[in-house]
Nucleic acid binder design. Sequence first.
DNA 1: CGATTGTATATTGTATACAGTATACTATCT
DNA 2: AGATAGTATACTGTATACAATATACAATCG
Lengths: 224, 224
Amino acid sequence: MVNLKVNYDEYIPLRDIVFKTLREAIITGDLKPGERLMEIKLANELGVSRTPVREAIRKLELEGLVIMTARKGAEVAPINEKDLREVLEIRKVLESLACELACKNVQPENVVVFEEINAKTEEAVKNERIEEITKQDVAFHEAIYSITKNDRLVQMLHNLKEHIFRYRLEYIKDMKNKGTIVEEHKKIIDAIASKNVRAACKEIERHIEVQEKYILNTLIKEAK
Amino acid sequence: MVNLKVNYDEYIPLRDIVFKTLREAIITGDLKPGERLMEIKLANELGVSRTPVREAIRKLELEGLVIMTARKGAEVAPINEKDLREVLEIRKVLESLACELACKNVQPENVVVFEEINAKTEEAVKNERIEEITKQDVAFHEAIYSITKNDRLVQMLHNLKEHIFRYRLEYIKDMKNKGTIVEEHKKIIDAIASKNVRAACKEIERHIEVQEKYILNTLIKEAK
DNA sequence: CGATTGTATATTGTATACAGTATACTATCT
DNA sequence: AGATAGTATACTGTATACAATATACAATCG
């Protein structure tokens, strides 16, 4: 018999496509903070009916990317310093937990992967390829997540990272800090490789704090 | 002029009512793990149309309380040891963060509130009033959250706690551990009152670990 | 001219209708 | 009898229709 498995993952409901599309638009800033999300308009633009749009908005609401006002509708959640601080405060302890779990589960082959990613990051930094730096940075953190064996944690970190992205796109353009990323990642890799939980947590927290500082600088600059 | 503020919070969309109703039903076990959530059936039972039911399900999906299968529908997420461990692992670090922030922000009057709640808990334990113990336990943790000044953290902890509730209802009935709650809370209060971050974190983590142990015991017993 | 009311329009909230797929059951064939 | 195909039914996915409310603008009154 031929292996003709009907791939169930193949079918993606419109609501999920709309959800991802809108989320992407919010994260990239295509939809600006405060901008209203009008169902009919979005439906027309996306070529679907209101139903999938509404369902997508419900999810965005729970993710905190849009704010609902009863009978008025949804608007893109504002970004501000308080929000950023809150998210990073949480992300810091969750990334730290991820590192702790990574220390417990790490295998030699994982370390190889970490180092490969970091080599690519270094390369990207040399060539000043910002897109690539971002991509590899994400890949690095994902690689850590993947060995935590805590699916819910991974999901939550994904979610938080998307929020950060709303800010980070600006920050990453600031090339001043690009050199330190590689070094910071190196320290984290070493700590995890040697299963040094304390050091790993310390380094990842510092790593996030560095980010925080740069992003806040950018925010303040923009406000001026 | 008369103060006739039209309370905007007064109006609650059906989808939110349905959402809360279904969530409650899942948490209390009224809707059992694995049970299918059929839209028409639920709509009829609740006396609404499918639309608000669907939107509520979308939110439950993102909260992880229901699992979607494309074109088949939603079913109540199963509860199992892995899920519980994952949630508690996360909750531990987030509660710990909450305590850390509480240490930073705590005022004398907050401590008074903590102690009042714990006195009520002790009273409830004496009278073996399980409902009341649960209520006061929740109030205690909420009281800590309320001084963290991190709204997103509070929201996430709320969410996690609801998941735990699916398990805890069983565990709290096990009266063996009821005595220790008051002591544990006392230690946490003292640590926060003296702004001893390290001790507060240690105690809250231990507090959650105790819970975890009891819940897991209950789960294993039930599996038999 | 400013304030207020009335009215039209836009938008959300909710219900319903229609289309397509999955599931269960029955009938048929071997 | 067991397997397969056919068919009816149930349910989700999507679109649309209708109702209620918010918003903006014009008309009216003082």
